[in-house]
Amino acid sequence: MTSSHQKTFSLSTQIQISPTPLNIQACIDWIISPESGGIDVFIGTVRNATKGKPVIRLEFEAYEPMAIAEMEKIIKQAAVQWPIQKALIHHRTGVLEIGEVPVIIAVSAAHRAAAFDACRYIIDTLKQTVPIWKKEIFEDGEIWVAAHP
C-alpha cells in the first residue's frame, strides 16, 4: 500500500504517512519561516533494544485515513494551547531497521517555549491516540508492542 497524504488548514500544517524513508532536511526546510523565532524538531529513531532485549527491526502499520484525522486533531489541540505558526507530522510505515526514523514532529513559533511545549504535546499525544502499530522483531520471535497487559 503506497500512499502519502498532505493536508493544510488555517494553521499551516503538513501531515504525511509514508512507506518511504522520511526526509529530515525537507521537514526543517518546510517548517522554517521568516515569522518564526524558533523551531522545535523531534526525531524518533529505532532503538536496538527493548528492556535489555536486542531488537532486530520494527514494522509499523497505520490505519491511514483515521491516523491522519487523529493527527489533524492533535495539531488543532496544540494550536489552541500554544501560539504556534506551523506544525508538521511525518510518520513512516513498513519495515524499519535500527537507526531509521519512524516519526518526525516539527513546530515553529515566534518564541521557543510554545514550540517546545507544542512539539512535546504532539508526540506524547500521537503515541496515545493515533492508530499506528509497531511490531518488534527479536531473534526468537516478535510482538505487537503494548497489545497485552
Binding site: 483515521m66 519512524p102 516519526v103 500521537l126 502499530w133 508492542v145 497489545a147
Partner: peptide, 10 residues
C-alpha cells in the same frame, strides 16, 4: 468499522 487495539506509533 475498525478494531483498534492499543496503539504504539511514534
Amino acid at each position: 468499522i475498525a478494531v483498534i487495539p492499543p496503539v504504539s506509533g511514534g
